[in-house]
């Protein structure tokens, strides 16, 4: 069973995305195939040059960049959402794959879970 965790909320303001990341890491820990999709405001998770020190949080892009080491199979980022926020592939952390259609990506997985 193939699971996709979708993060479509901006980072830092709520726990939604972090919970999604925890879920992805937990599935990976038990060798369950899992991928992540960042879409909408969620694409900000993957931006380089973030520093959350001043707001007393951990920098989400750094947390996210552990996904590959833990066995998360892919980190997909919605291209249209990136365009909306003026983000180019070079401004994203290593290991991101841009996808043209989030809707099409959803169809490739048996289980899709949006991070609240």
């Amino acid at each position: 069973m193939n699971t996709l965790i979708v993060i479509d909320r901006a980072p830092y303001g709520s726990w939604a995305g972090r919970e999604g990341l925890d879920m992805a890491f937990s599935l990976a820990a038990f060798d369950q195939p899992v991928s992540l999709l960042l879409t909408g405001a969620g694409v900000h998770w993957a931006k380089r040059d973030q520093d959350a020190t001043a707001i007393g949080q951990k920098t989400v892009a750094k947390n996210l960049s552990a996904a590959g080491l833990f066995g998360v199979e892919s980190l997909q980022v919605d291209a249209t959402s990136c365009e909306r926020f003026g983000l180019t592939k070079e401004q994203l952390i290593a290991g991101c794959t841009l996808v043209e259609s989030s809707q099409a990506t959803l169809k490739q997985f048996d289980r899709v879970v949006f991070a609240n």
């Binding site: 890491f25 937990s26 820990a29 951990k58 750094k62 960049s65 552990a66």
Partner: peptide, 12 residues
């Protein structure tokens, strides 16, 4: 240093 997090579990 790279990830600002400890590996969350023993398996990871």
């Amino acid at each position: 240093k790279a990830h600002e997090v400890a590996p969350p579990s023993n398996r990871l």
